[in-house]
Nucleic acid binder design. Structure first.
Lengths: 318, 318
DNA sequence: GTGAAAGCGCTAACAT
DNA sequence: ATGTTAGCGCTTTCAC
């Protein structure tokens, strides 16, 4: 027989163990199908091999891929992920953080920009912010929203659009604001500064569709840059419903590059973010932090890519 | 001062505590911002207020809503959910079960039909099977796949289709087989038993599109019942690409009722499952089991609903 | 190199 | 009605 201490030593590759003893222990563990109790281990080590992942709403088609990426990477390193839907409510986010801490999660990845750094500081748990920058103090992985928006706007210009509208995302979401800023700057750079037309959206298809319907009744436009893909679909529906053709009468480009964009007719042009890579990178950064390794960089801004499909493919220039 | 035992007593509403003392304890807890350590509690009670949720792939648009429902309900009862993507691999599912058990999860909801009941028995953890029946021994929540398939097939017949093809889902997925069976039986009932045309799909858009392209080259058809919505979109793309019109030349109906069906042009008819309700019900059943309450019923089969949209709306009867 | 023992923070007897 | 204590299963000193 051997003592529990010895078993623990072989499990943790910790302290000295006779080779022969180690062999016997491993053999016995296998035979008895012994699996160490992770809860007891967590209690002692104050670390649970579990992380929290807080997203606004997994039902929003932008997030599944992000979540999947995080889960995949975490899984490689033997971490397990607790999924939390916050609906963008600070209160819910706060509650989740509380619960997660009570469970000794080793870290949290969150998609939010609503917290004051002082509050985050108090949480005293490693975090990584994903998709939306929170504060320079905290590691983040985001895509280049500003540049992507300029790209999209310029692309519409290049296919001949001159009256380019932008459907803006929610005001409290930083990345939506960055995209808006990109639109504004590019419009000015194109000499269309005074032709700007901004439609207020909330990242939802339905609302965007209605807003575009309303806008079409009052304004002339020949191109729409939507703040995300869902709203681009909304715009597409609105335009088609008004009897106008896409891309001939109005060209449309979305943002995010979710699979949905390939399912519409016509297929939607979009600015694609490396969604999976963003999630994977956030996960890797969190692990580094947990393991106390130094981060080469605190903030990662991934490049976006213009994806041209049918919704902006037209020959004629105005 | 009070002893830890007393604090525990007020926390658990357990044993007798002087009212005045309770007040003081609660006050102190608030002031000190004391939060009990859930890990220690779990170690003692062998229950962690955490459940596992194993789905094939959160990236598949059928699952986000299901996951969301589970999370919502679990949240109400103060449970937290660990999300696991199995890619339909038994091996991965097994590993997850192992890990979850080591973490003392109180129960597991899983979407699979690949386990022998003897194996599940050994896990010795409350489970609920979701979307796919596993075995009569285990509580399950599924929709009426057979009836839904008959509904879809009959609907195509009623809008005038006589050469109705079915795109079948993967063979190892029971619900896909149920739908296939429904198609067969209904075709026979309609007197079209010898006009059946089955296209093998794997629940993926892309593969379905190609399979339909190939089928269109060889066979005549005027209606397609796809085993799920993703494949219906694939079929839609294939048909359109062949220069045929939907629904005039070929009517298409999908299955599941995911939001995607409203985003295509034309919008897709489908058999909608009460996805959110299924997830929520599975969660409620799991909680009942965990709390040791009796289940009125072991197996819940929820009704499905025919949703008619543009992809099957045509006047002309053949 | 290995065993004995203390302790992580909690809860449930068992005293008082 | 409340305090004291043992123990959940693990890891880590500290002896030997």
């Amino acid at each position: 027989m051997v003592s529990v201490a010895t078993v623990s030593r072989v499990l943790n590759q910790n302290g000295y163990v006779n080779e022969e003893t180690e062999r016997r222990v491993r053999q016995a563990m296998k035979e008895l199908n012994y699996k160490p109790n992770e809860v007891a281990r967590a209690l002692f080590k104050k670390t649970s091999k579990t992380v929290g992942l807080i997203v606004p709403d997994i039902t929003n088609p932008f997030f599944p891929e992000l979540v999947r990426a995080v889960e995949d990477v975490m899984n490689i390193y033997d971490y397990t992920v607790i999924l939390c839907n916050s609906d963008e409510k600070v209160e819910k986010e706060r509650e989740y953080i509380e619960v997660l801490k009570q469970k000794y999660v080793d870290g949290v990845i969150l998609t939010t920009n609503q917290f004051a750094p002082e509050e985050v500081e108090e949480w005293d748990v490693p975090i990584v912010v994903l998709d939306r920058p929170l504060h320079e103090r905290y590691p983040s992985v985001v895509a280049d929203n500003y540049e992507g928006a300029r790209l999209a706007t310029r692309h519409l210009y290049e296919v001949g659009c001159r009256r380019i509208a932008h459907i803006q995302g929610p005001n409290h979401v930083v990345n939506a604001m960055e995209r808006f800023r990109g639109y504004q700057d590019e419009m000015r750079a194109l000499g269309l500064g005074d032709r700007q037309l901004v439609i207020q959206g909330n990242y939802q298809l339905k609302q965007a569709k209605e807003a575009v319907m309303a806008a079409l009744a009052e304004h002339d436009m020949d191109g729409i840059f939507a703040g995300n893909d869902a709203m681009a679909v909304g715009a597409l529906k609105a335009v088609q419903q008004c009897g106008l053709r896409v891309p001939d009468d109005i060209a449309i480009i979305g943002y995010d590059g979710i699979p949905l964009t390939e399912m519409t007719t016509p297929e939607l042009s979009t600015v694609s973010q490396p969604i999976y890579e963003m999630g994977a990178m956030a996960a890797r950064i969190l692990i580094k932090q947990i393991e106390g390794k130094p981060l080469e960089k605190l903030h990662y801004q991934l490049p976006v890519q213009l994806v041209v499909r049918q919704s902006t493919s037209r020959r004629g220039l105005t």
